[in-house]
Design a protein around this nucleic acid. Structure first.
Lengths: 224, 224
DNA sequence: CACATCAGAGAGCGGTGCTCTCGTTCGATT
DNA sequence: AATCGAACGAGAGCACCGCTCTCTGATGTG
């Protein structure tokens, strides 16, 4: 089973998710394609395993970057974003697998929710830290947060008891959406080729995009 | 040829790009699969045609929304973003086709550049209008725009002669990247299921995300 | 009328996911 | 120790895919 996953991971990294063929994996293992079905019920199930791996990988990358960086939450967010970008450029197919077009007819099982939420946890944690430290500027547009972010998500991320999400917490958590979107958006846009003939220095474009979006939620990032 | 494109479009809208099968299109037309190759050299070429159609469609949606909306550039941007989102939710597979994971081994030919740049044109136009009207706040982070945005892109969008892009224009154009990213990012995140169990009211999440990112570049959007 | 061009058909190649049946092997129970 | 059953793997086969090849027939033109 471990060998199977390793072979599938190798195939994914070299050929991409769309080309991940169960038969090819079987060939790499020196087995008949039918034998693989002893371990995995379908190709999509195999993909699910890789998806969970990818979510966990990006979650760990973000958590590590957040722990390693300096104290200022805004600069820490920049470092986290950079780390995630580096990971995505390194393993583009893993990024595509989780943040790109979902596989046709594929419905993510609940097993993927917990690892997927790790990144949200890092983001919300940074916003909380900024609020506590008094470095969180007033956000651009303010609005009523009731019912906007699911309390369940906050609870899964380990912040509060789902039944008692304070208005204060919700108001901050809402801003995490913009940070998350700017991160996924900036990487997607670069990775999927939409900066072709638009921007030259992709790393700089990324930094600026992250910093600008962060300014909107009240995090002042200074770029050198 | 027109029938072929129509059938392919229908297949795309019902099954998605990954499942767009030349044989299926041929069946829909009552032809042998080999006959289709009289008109189109390969499946990828057929996809390219649909990609160009999609870029043009989203470009027109954006241009129309920009023309119809009121005078305030910030509010107009919100309307443009909403219109593009509506289009994407309406034709998810077309959105995926251009802003999702690129098709394996597919390299976009230059024919796609011009339609792809229409959306950029709308964005830059709005920023210019805001700057002219004096409603463009100082952006979050400021930075040297030299060499950041390709002059060619500005020229293609119809703003300047590529050799003479003023520093003023470049400084404004740079901000368009954040708006573009927030738009594509917000739609991707929603369409690809990353708001599942995170946000309840997707339309509101979208508005807030767009407005917050816009605040970072200096556009004040007011949400009701 | 002869001829060339073109649209389409059909078979076939190697590939895919997946299912079914068949044999083997190996470990636990009696 | 013998036996039984579960687990594992192989192989054939189904329907589908992109794509190529050859062949047929219609069509229009010199």
């Amino acid at each position: 089973m471990a060998e199977l996953l390793a072979a599938a991971r190798a195939r994914l990294e070299s050929d991409g998710s769309a080309a991940l063929s169960l038969r090819a994996v079987a060939r790499d293992l020196g087995m008949a394609s039918s034998a693989v079905y002893r371990y995995v019920p379908s190709r999509d199930a195999l993909l699910t395993l890789l998806i969970i791996e990818a979510y966990d990988a990006v979650g760990e990358v973000a958590e590590t970057a957040a722990a390693d960086a300096d104290r200022d939450p805004a600069q820490t967010w920049l470092e986290v974003a950079r780390a995630v970008r580096r990971w995505a450029l390194d393993q583009p197919y893993s990024f595509e697998l989780i943040y790109g077009t979902p596989v046709r007819g594929y419905r993510a099982p609940d097993d993927t929710v917990r690892p997927a939420v790790r990144l949200w946890g890092v983001i919300i944690g940074l916003l909380m830290a900024a609020a506590d430290g008094g470095t969180l500027d007033p956000a651009g547009p303010d609005f009523d947060p009731t019912g906007r972010m699911a309390p369940e998500a906050l609870a899964t991320a380990g912040f509060t008891d789902p039944t008692t999400v304070s208005d204060e917490v919700a108001r901050i958590a809402v801003r995490s959406g913009t940070l998350f979107t700017s991160l996924v958006g900036a990487i997607s846009v670069e990775l999927f080729g939409h900066l072709h003939r638009v921007a030259d220095d992709h790393a700089r474009f990324f930094d600026v995009t992250i910093a600008t979006a962060a300014a909107g939620v009240g995090l002042r990032i200074t770029l050198d």
